[in-house]
Every structure is written in structure tokens, then in C-alpha cells.
Design a protein around this nucleic acid. Structure first.
Length: 413
RNA sequence: GCGGCCGUAGCUCAGUUGGUUAGAGCGCUAGAUUGUGAUUCUAGAUGUCGCCGGUUCAAAUCCGGUCGGCCGCCCCA
């Protein structure tokens, strides 16, 4: 670490990049607001047990990717690897929230996963997150997906994404299907890839979207989930599909879409793109009706999604340019003092004003240019005596005299 | 965790089969101007060649290790 590097898998968000980052969050926040979602935040670390119980002990996220440490009091804490568990915990911790159902929430913040870094996959990364608690109806699924589609649309990403949709069924369907699948693959275990043999133990549904050619051949004849959904699950999935069609959100059914976190039931979905390499999932989520009860809360349905901000930034259009400032260029101590007051008056009128801390005329004009100022206010002793300033339009080069008390008016817009 | 590619000024990159003071463009700084920027001209500075060690008379160049980035797998957002 001789040359001061950031920790592996972390990076600094410098001002130019941060603007694009904030643009994604601001856009998401605004769209969420239109749908009636309220923003909140939870701590970035929680008791380790929360994630172990909520996400599932055998998932990759919990078993090998968490930043877990003991604090000075001996508690085992973990930097959150995702947002949903923390939000559900907050729901259980704060009884008042149970009186506000359905609870529609938006959140954004950093997440931590110990993974091999790559573009679009950092150890500290950031997500926007949307959740609805206390709504078992398919209408919530439809709404939550619509919000996501609208956010992606505003960011200029929707056209380069495909929405993939699947149903994992209710717990009854899921366990039944899981058993059928395990039986099927167990009969072919000799021909399965090593990865998939492992998956057979931990999460057999995952074998369905294996990229291994041998596995794909076996998958071709694998029993399909849709044939094993019970009537209730089937009806639910149908309603979600019909609702999305009615809302005008295009989607594709992907029977191989399985999410890696244990808590999902019924609807699972992902917006994926082929434009940013292997880390193609830009936003994904699903329904988790059993999670809150699992955490010891009152049985409460839940559905939501998370979107990777870094991945969204790579695809999003540029944020609108900032309003250009005006630069004030005083010459001499008297003018410099006077400029302080003028600058403040203009700022209070809503005009962005840049005032250099030092420098002669040339330097101040150069700075004004670098700051992309639209105009310069030139204030020397001559102007001071007359109660005026020279206002120079930096695009046209035109310059004219303006009375000091008319400056705000002259520089409006 | 597995396999592979890469690491030279602030940025994008050159750098012959190891050979003397390591280069270009952009950017940066200063001057051409006494109260006027961006354009133009001139001059200047860029740097532990990621880091540590090894081979060699000699390493940016070859070898090993390490740190970091990237690609694929795994997994996920």
C-alpha cells in the first residue's frame, strides 16, 4: 500500500461521477414519490443473525460474501449485503409502521459484499430500493414493477433492458416442485457439472439457468415450474401478467429465472441488459411473503426490488447540465469588499455567483471561463465611484454597464 | 473461490531482439497584454515505469511474489 490506494473493491465518487450517481438516485426518488412511496433509511450494519436468518444460511451471499466482524462489545455485526432484511427488521422493531399498511418505501445507500471485483461489481456498491409491506395482492407486484420500469425509462435505460418474469409459487408449490426437481436431477447426477451437483444440495432451482452445455441438455427435459404451480399460485401469476400488460409494461416469461435469496415466493423479476458485460442484471426483486414472520414479526406480505446504482449509471443518460454561474471579478480591496455584498445579494435572488479568493483581472477571467460562467461582473474603482459594474457576456463577448442595484434583474435567468 | 489479460506523466497511449539523460498528444503552469476569458504564439514542469525481490556488466523491457484494475465462471444489483 505504498501509494495510498482505496481498499480493493471500493472506489471514490469524484464530483463529475457523483453527479451521475446522484442523478440516478434523484430520478428514482422522484418517480417513487409519484407513486406514493416514502423514503427512509436503516443502519448500514445489523446483527449478523438478521441476515443469516433472513437471507438464508446456505446462500452464497451469507455463506461467503458478508463483511462480518465482532465489535468491541463482542457482538457479531455484519455490513448489510442488501436492503430488504434491514427494512423488514425496522418494520418489526418499530410497531408504528404496522399501523401504516400497506407501507410503501423507497431507500438508497451502500451495500457490502466480499466478492471478486469487476466492473459493475464492487465490494462496496450502492442500491436504490423499493418495498411494499403488508400487501399480499398482485396489484402490489404490478405497481412495484411499474415504478421500476418508469425509473429506467426516465434514465433512458428501459429500451436497452428486458424485463424477465417468473413465479416461484407459494411455499407449497415451491417445496413440491423442488422435490420433483431434485428427483429428476438426482437421476442424472453423473452427467451434471460440478457446479450443478453442488447446487443440487444448496439451491436446485439454480441448475435451471446453468450456463454449462451439459447441464443445458439435461435442463431441456427437466420438469417445468409452471406445471407444478398450484391453482392459487397460478392465478396469482396470471393476475400479475395481466396487470403488467394492462399497465403497458412489456415482459418475458423466463422459467429459468431464480433468485439466489431464500426468502422469495411467487413473483420474481429482473431487468437485464446485454450492454454492460456479464453483470447484466440492473434491477431485480420479487415477493417475500414469509420473511417478516421468519424474523419474528406479525405475518406480513412483502414485495420489492433493488437496483444497482453503479450499473444504472453506466447505462443512464447524462443528467441535465447545471445552471451556469456568474463570476464576479472585483479589482482592488475596495471593490473586493463591495463584491462580497453584491455576490450575496445575487445569490439570495437565486443566481449562482462565483467569487475568486484572489487574483488579478486576467486570472479572474480565466477562472470564470473554466467555471463555465455565462457572464462576468467586472467591478473596479471607476465603476465603484459611479455605482455601476461592467457586465460581460462570456459567450458573445459583449460588455455593458449596469447600475449595481439593477444587477439581479440584468442577470436573471 | 476458479481460469485468463493488464499496470509507463493528471488523462489517452508510444517505448525496437534487455543498452546510456524515458517520449507524444491532451491537460497543467508561466509569458506575449497596462483593467478582459475562451482562440493563437512561445517557454516550462511533468514520472520511485504499481510495489518488493531475483537474473544480468546493464531491467520500463526477462523471472518470481505481492497489490490493484479488467474479462469469463460462480453469484448477484
Amino acid at each position: 500500500m505504498s501509494k495510498m490506494q482505496p481498499v480493493r473493491g471500493t472506489h471514490d465518487l469524484l464530483p463529475d461521477e457523483y453527479r451521475r450517481f446522484a442523478h440516478v438516485i434523484d430520478t428514482a426518488r422522484e418517480v417513487a414519490r409519484l407513486y406514493g412511496y416514502r423514503e427512509m433509511a436503516t443502519p448500514i450494519f445489523e446483527f449478523t443473525e438478521l441476515f443469516a436468518r433472513g437471507i438464508g444460511e446456505t446462500t452464497d451471499v451469507v455463506s461467503k460474501e458478508m463483511y462480518t466482524f465482532q465489535d468491541r462489545g463482542g457482538e457479531s455485526l455484519t455490513l448489510r449485503p442488501e436492503y430488504t432484511a434491514g427494512i423488514c427488521r425496522a418494520f418489526v422493531s418499530n410497531g408504528e409502521l404496522a399501523q401504516q399498511l400497506p407501507l410503501k418505501l423507497f431507500a438508497a445507500g451502500p451495500m457490502f459484499r466480499y466478492e471478486r471485483p469487476q466492473k459493475g461489481r464492487q465490494r462496496q456498491f450502492h442500491q436504490i430500493d423499493l418495498e411494499v409491506l403488508g400487501a399480499p395482492e398482485p396489484g402490489a407486484d404490478i405497481e412495484v414493477i411499474s415504478v421500476a420500469a418508469d425509473i429506467l425509462d426516465r434514465l433512458g435505460i428501459l429500451g436497452r433492458c428486458v424485463l424477465k418474469l417468473n413465479s416461484l409459487g407459494d411455499p407449497e408449490s415451491r417445496t413440491a416442485y423442488r422435490k420433483v426437481l431434485v428427483d429428476y436431477y438426482s437421476a442424472h447426477t453423473a452427467r451434471l457439472s460440478e457446479d450443478s451437483r453442488d447446487r443440487l444440495q444448496r439451491n436446485p432451482l439454480r441448475i435451471l439457468d446453468s450456463k454449462d452445455e451439459g447441464d443445458k441438455a439435461i435442463n431441456a427435459d427437466a420438469p417445468s415450474f409452471s406445471d407444478h404451480l398450484n391453482q392459487a399460485s397460478r392465478d396469482f401469476f396470471k393476475q400479475v401478467q395481466d396487470g403488467l400488460a394492462a399497465a403497458g409494461v412489456p415482459f418475458e416469461i423466463d422459467p429459468a429465472l431464480v433468485r439466489g435469496l431464500d426468502y422469495y415466493t411467487h413473483t420474481a423479476f429482473e431487468f437485464v441488459t446485454t450492454h454492460i458485460g456479464a453483470q447484466g442484471t440492473v434491477l431485480g426483486g420479487g415477493r417475500y411473503d414469509g420473511l417478516i414472520a421468519e424474523l419474528g414479526g406479525p405475518p406480513t406480505a412483502g414485495i420489492g426490488w433493488a437496483g444497482g446504482i453503479e450499473r444504472l449509471v453506466m447505462l443512464a443518460n447524462e443528467p441535465a447540465p447545471l445552471p451556469r454561474p456568474v463570476a464576479i471579478a472585483p479589482l482592488g480591496p475596495a471593490a473586493e469588499a463591495k463584491a462580497l455584498g453584491i455576490a450575496r445579494t445575487l445569490r439570495r435572488a437565486g443566481i449562482a455567483v462565483e467569487q475568486d479568493y484572489r487574483g488579478n483581472m486576467k486570472r479572474r477571467m480565466q477562472r470564470a471561463n473554466k467555471l463555465n460562467a455565462r457572464a462576468a461582473i467586472i467591478l473596479g474603482d471607476d465603476e465603484l465611484a459611479k455605482g455601476v459594474a461592467q457586465v460581460k457576456d462570456l459567450d458573445s463577448g459583449a460588455q455593458h454597464e449596469v447600475a449595481l442595484d439593477k444587477l439581479a434583474e440584468a442577470l436573471k435567468s
